[in-house]
């Protein structure tokens, strides 16, 4: 929430500064932004529906349970899967990961979970494909998934 307030503050400050320097250009910029937002609104709504449905059907305790149960290969795969599909903001994901660490979940699994959570976004694909194109978006997500598992395995070896 603080982050959101900060962003609003920054945005308003920048708009005012920009307005002081060049009124017409500022207006043009704001309109450009608003137009982009308007065009992509359906995709964002789609994202919103997907995410809230998934979060509603699969509560956090279930996630923790799934992650905590398996170790080794299956654990890594489950972590990668959940991390790819879930869309959990950092402020919620890290406490969850810390809780799992206390329960004895390996750092490999945690690193895979955290990294795939941040790099892979199955639910955000509708938004991503609008900007990068469908094929680029899919390939980027696949590569990131492999990358996330790789990062997790190496982090697990180092720590």
């Amino acid at each position: 929430m603080n982050r959101d307030i900060a962003l609003i503050g920054i945005t308003i400050t920048i708009i005012m500064l920009s307005f002081l320097f060049d009124r017409r250009r500022t207006l043009k910029g704001v309109i450009t932004g608003a137009r982009m937002l308007y065009k992509l609104l359906p995709q964002f709504i789609l994202l919103l529906i997907f995410v809230s449905t998934c979060l509603g059907v699969v509560p956090q305790e279930t996630l923790a349970h799934l992650l905590g149960r398996q170790a080794g290969g299956p654990g890594v795969m489950i972590a990668a899967l959940i991390g790819s599909v879930a869309l959990i903001p950092g402020p919620i994901a890290y406490p969850l990961a810390a809780m799992l660490a206390e329960q004895g979940v390996s750092y490999t699994v945690l690193a895979v979970f955290v990294t795939s959570l941040m790099m892979v976004g199955v639910l955000t694909l509708p938004v991503e494909k609008e900007y990068l194109g469908t094929r680029i978006a899919i390939v980027r997500n696949l590569l990131s998934l492999i990358g996330a598992v790789f990062v997790g395995l190496i982090v697990g070896m180092i720590i």
Binding site: I14, R25, T26, K28, G29, I31, T32, G33, A34
Partner: peptide, 18 residues
């Protein structure tokens, strides 16, 4: 989304023109 997304887009619009 109501807070973040519009801010992001307005900032992008401003970056675009400046």
């Amino acid at each position: 989304m109501v807070v973040l997304v519009p801010c992001i887009f307005i900032l992008i619009g401003l970056i675009d023109v400046w």
